[in-house]
Design a protein around this nucleic acid. Structure first.
Length: 328
DNA sequence: GGGACACCTTGGTT
DNA sequence: AAACCAAGGTGTC
């Protein structure tokens, strides 16, 4: 039913799936017992956490397998079933998974540096180990974070599920859950009544943002561009580029820059980080305002970037998750 | 140019 | 139970 299990040679200190995958970087991971399942580069990936060996193994589903194709007749066949593709060769899956987890970046040394620069980080670091940034597909990341505005992780997840099930391409079923590709911008842009449909799918006022941005990106891509071309450009350029899209403000732009465009210094200031700064860092920042504004946003983001250094965004992820789990 | 204000919808709290 | 608030904010006056 699947290709062979392979090893993601990263220790628990380097990556903790249970912290990273459900905490609002990607909104597409499903937990199945000790496994985490999602789609990377249009292939279903199953990650298995093996605490006994302090290692993670993974495999990909073979879409042609009977076990994974049983459910076809039960779905509305609006999308013509394209002939099942064969799974990508193992080396491609390997490189995709390692790329997705930013595996060449060593977390241990980053934690050391953050701890040395910031007393508060040092204080919480022991309880929040293995928190790293994923390196996500640019369009999926951009689209997901447009949906994140004034919203909760739970509902964002639901919206993205609906989006993929409606506009994505079916890949395979695993443990009774169907997996789909993330729809391309051009698919959304050319789909009739897309914005209205998105509202029906629970997007609320974000439906227009997603549709307009999909159209803008599709047009731009039609001229021979690719979002991933922006990788490697300076943070300010990436940010300016992203801010042109409807539904993208400073916070969303910083998230996408950090999580998809390799801008490791980008520090998104969301409501949780804002709260924790008020509570823990405020005396140092002379930050008195109670509400967010563009100026306050820029000040805070810059302050934390200076405090944590070139990989400040990675420290932000740790702080963010610690705040999400404050009660635990 | 900054500061209210509205915005879809869901889930949790009072 | 009805009202209210917050949720990884943004666009618009």
């Amino acid at each position: 039913m699947s290709t062979a299990w392979r090893q993601l040679r990263m220790s628990g200190k380097e990556v903790s799936l249970d912290w990273i995958l459900p905490s609002g970087q990607s909104f597409r991971w499903k937990r199945e017992g000790e496994e985490w399942v999602s789609v990377i580069q249009d292939a279903v990936i199953i990650l298995r956490n093996d605490p006994s060996t302090d290692n993670i193994t993974y495999c990909t589903l073979d879409p042609r397998s009977p076990e994974t194709t049983i459910k076809h007749e039960s779905k509305p066949a609006q999308i013509p079933p394209s002939p099942p593709k064969s799974p990508p060769p193992a080396y491609e899956i390997d490189s995709a998974v390692h790329d997705y987890f930013n595996s060449s970046i060593k977390l241990a040394s980053l934690y050391r540096e953050f701890g040395a620069r910031d007393k508060y980080f040092k204080q919480i670091a022991d309880r929040f180990v293995g928190i790293r940034m994923l390196r996500q597909d640019p369009w999926e990341c951009l689209c997901s974070f447009i949906c994140s505005s004034n919203n909760s992780i739970k509902r964002i997840t639901q919206m993205i599920d609906n989006l993929c099930a409606t506009y994505g391409t079916y890949i395979a079923t695993y443990k009774d859950i169907d997996y789909y590709t993330f729809p391309r911008p051009s698919t959304l842009a050319s789909s009739p009544n897309c914005a209205a449909k998105l509202r029906e799918l629970g997007f609320g006022y974000r439906a227009d943002y997603v549709y307009k941005t999909a159209k803008a990106v599709a047009d731009w891509e039609a001229q021979g561009n690719q979002l991933s071309d922006m990788r490697g450009k300076p943070y300010d350029d990436v940010r300016e580029f992203l801010l042109q899209f409807t539904g993208v403000g400073p916070k969303v732009a910083d998230c996408v820059a950090l999580m998809s465009f390799d801008c490791h210094e980008s520090v998104p200031i969301d409501t949780h980080v804002f709260n924790i700064v008020k509570r823990r860092y405020s005396p140092k920042t002379k930050m008195v305002s109670k509400t967010m504004s563009k100026v306050v946003y820029d000040e805070l983001s810059l302050y934390l970037r200076d405090l944590w250094g070139p990989y400040a965004g990675w420290a932000q992820a740790v702080i963010f998750i610690s705040e999400l789990n404050r009660d635990k």
